[in-house]
């Protein structure tokens, strides 16, 4: 038996080991994120996780206790009772109260999440098979954003870069500490624009416009993905958002309006060390 276990463990280690330059691959939890709403969602998630974990410990302890003590091999005789109105009422009412304790904060977060009033600017996001289009609605700036990973890297002909399947050619640039409204729509099938650090996910639906909002509080590079199955290239239309301070953003916008794309790109790059692809640092 023992050598089998050792062999199995070695095999598992080998299998995990050969899965390439897996950086920071042990992330277990939802990111806390960088917007007020993402913090609220994170806390709601942790509250729910805490409650179900506590209930789980209670229920599973009872099962384990029972499995150990109430077994025929210990010579016990089975009890005869098989109902109790008190117990039934108790385990109907108590979970109900716990659920209310969860529902109230959830409703509060939901109301806040839907309130896009007072936004200072609007970005229209259009999904296509398989790329994104960003339009700064009042500022006459728009561009497409495509995957920046080579096919050779996908096929394993060259080593996979650290930003494999997350990097894009033209990232969305946002100012920090400003409330940004997003409009979502699509040019073909349904997509969904998801950036976990913003707790933002909304379906892009052809012929309809959906709305949500974000207020990014930290300068940084944030990554996301299309979340709704949209065909063959579904995995290959990532999202990159670069958040920079408001004044720098204004400057960037002017450069973009003047058609000086390269200068604009340099300005954004000045806020980051582009060599550092660090998903985890943003958490």
């Amino acid at each position: 038996m023992r050598p089998t276990i050792v062999k199995a463990a070695a095999l598992l280690a080998l299998l995990v080991g050969v899965s390439g330059p897996a950086l920071a691959g042990w992330e277990l939890n939802m990111p806390r994120g960088v917007t007020p709403v993402s913090h609220e969602v994170y806390h709601l998630h942790m509250l729910a996780l805490g409650i179900v974990t506590a209930i789980g410990i209670g229920v599973f302890s009872a099962i384990i206790w029972s499995l150990i003590h109430h077994r025929k091999s210990r010579g016990v005789t089975p009890a005869k009772w098989h109902e109790s109105m008190t117990a039934e009422i108790a385990w109907t009412i108590v979970p109900f109260i716990i659920l209310i304790a969860l529902a109230l904060p959830a409703a509060y977060v939901m109301i806040n999440m839907e309130d896009d009033s007072g936004a200072e600017m609007t970005v229209k996001v259009t999904g296509y098979q398989w790329l994104w289009h960003y339009e700064y609605v009042d500022d006459e700036v728009d561009f497409y954003s495509r995957l920046d990973t080579s096919r050779q890297a996908m096929l394993g002909e060259i080593p996979k870069p650290d930003d494999y399947l997350v990097g894009v050619d033209n990232p969305l640039v946002l100012p920090t500490d400003r409330k940004v409204r997003f409009h979502h729509t699509s040019g073909d099938v349904i997509h969904a624009w998801w950036v976990p650090e913003f707790a933002m996910k909304k379906d892009s639906i052809p012929g309809f416009i959906n709305t949500n909002w974000a207020e990014v509080q930290e300068v940084g590079v944030y990554y996301g993905r299309c979340a709704e199955l949209c065909g063959r290239g579904h995995a290959f239309m990532p999202i990159t958002v670069k958040a920079i301070p408001g004044e720098a953003y204004d400057e960037w916008l002017e450069l973009m309006q003047a058609g000086e794309d390269e200068a604009a790109e340099e300005l954004v790059a000045g806020h980051f060390n582009d060599e550092d692809y660090q998903v985890v640092e943003n958490r």
């Binding site: 995990v16 897996a22 950086l23 691959g25 277990l28 494999y164 995995a235």
Partner: peptide, 20 residues
């Protein structure tokens, strides 16, 4: 929770360990 969508045939490197 870390951000991997469902129904994708390929994923970025940070999801590699748990997928293996």
């Amino acid at each position: 929770l870390a951000g991997m969508p469902r129904r994708i045939p390929d994923y970025s490197l940070q999801f590699a360990n748990f997928n293996a």
